[in-house]
């Protein structure tokens, strides 16, 4: 078995603490659909962990330079998209992981899902 990271890529403006969100009704439907996929993942015995992340603007980057630990406000990667949520699955192979990523992408349409194996 191999563990896979399913990372939801979410467009946002890292300087905006309140990134644009879909309207409440759409959001409620998305949450319900995502919860259903999660339940199905659990029932299939592949689910390890999942969760949604706060806005990328809430991130802090930590790095060591010399003896000093430096903190920087904001996400590490610059760009218009950041990980908005993640799921970790334990699957037999990539095809199984891609099947669940497909289910998830339908639930969060039109956001893309990046699938990446753990070492």
């Amino acid at each position: 078995m191999t563990q896979y990271l399913l990372a939801i890529q979410q467009p946002d403006d890292p300087t905006d603490p309140e990134p644009q969100r879909p309207d409440d009704e759409t959001l409620a439907r998305i949450m319900r659909d995502v919860e259903q996929v999660r339940t199905d993942m659990r029932d299939a015995g592949v689910w390890v962990f999942s969760g949604g992340l706060a806005a990328a603007a809430s991130a802090t980057v930590v790095r060591t330079r010399g003896d000093e630990v430096l903190l920087t406000d904001g996400p590490y990667a610059e760009g218009k998209e950041h990980i908005g949520g993640l799921t970790i699955l334990d699957c037999a192979d990539l095809d199984e992981a891609l099947h669940w990523a497909g289910r998830l992408s339908r639930a969060i349409h039109p956001l893309p899902v990046e699938v990446r194996p753990f070492q």
Partner: peptide, 11 residues
């Protein structure tokens, strides 16, 4: 190898 693309005819 790393992503474990399976070695089989798909379902």
């Amino acid at each position: 190898r790393d992503a474990r693309i399976p070695y089989r005819v798909p379902r």
